[in-house]
Design a protein around this nucleic acid. Sequence first.
DNA 1: CCAGCAGCCTGAAAGC
DNA 2: TGCTTTCAGGCTGCTG
Length: 272
Amino acid sequence: MPELPEVETIRRQLRPALVNREIGAVDAHSSEKFQPALEAAGTTITDLRRRGKYLIFDLDDGHEMLAHLGMTGSFRIDPSTTGSPDHERVGPHVRAVWQLDGGEDLIFRDIRRFGRLRVVPAGEYEGVPTLAAMGPEPLSDDFTGASLHHAVKRSTRAIKTQLLSQRPVAGVGNIYADEALFLAGIHPRRSRVGRDRCDTLAQTIKDVIAQGIDNGGTTLRDYVDAAGDEGSNQHALHVYGRAGEPCDQCGETLRSIVLDARTTCFCPACQT
DNA sequence: CCAGCAGCCTGAAAGC
DNA sequence: TGCTTTCAGGCTGCTG
């Protein structure tokens, strides 16, 4: 499931291959989630950026194409295999194909179709509520213990729920939230998190996100990068997916609960 | 305005 | 063996 480190890994791989490429014909799956891909036809990609878990393709006509990978989305650039774009011929689960000048295709695959594509005027995100209200990038200087504390201090919701909302900080999903809360010693259901603990949590969020990028992302099921390779960060996880195993800090048996309909793993001894 | 939750999706794995 | 059920979960949009 692509979170910030996975999306950033893909961005770094795709960007050099896409900047200054002109998009020719485009084909897209009939779902309204993917049809906006067609609106990028005839433009040139001027940059490829990331905000939280969103990829942002800057287009030279004043628009941006936003891509969210959902649970199972992936991008690749492959040699064009057809004279005309036809997603049925390039393989299963292909949701959009952008023909690029030079005889290659940018291909978006998404098994479960939780992903989404949109084209909007540059910087206008009012139709994308999560992006419009997104908090600071975790690795930026704007994200600090103070900013985190300010964002969560008035809410009575569980701290993990707040992290997943993307408002206190951008790009943190289920895996990295569990890992950061474990390293900070904070119970995922805790709602009141004081300034000192926010200082710690902000730092552990920065740590797990940076490590995830260094490791090329976490592959537990479907995630592959733009080269088709799996990440290696799954080997660095302390709690996610390890319920029933001993905590590697104290030996207590790790537990799994359901919080906001998401599997949440934590150490009942280390996290309070 | 916010909290809570159904709905979207498919394939792998578990259950019968 | 083969069918059915369960599970994985980010975001959107609706309801109270």
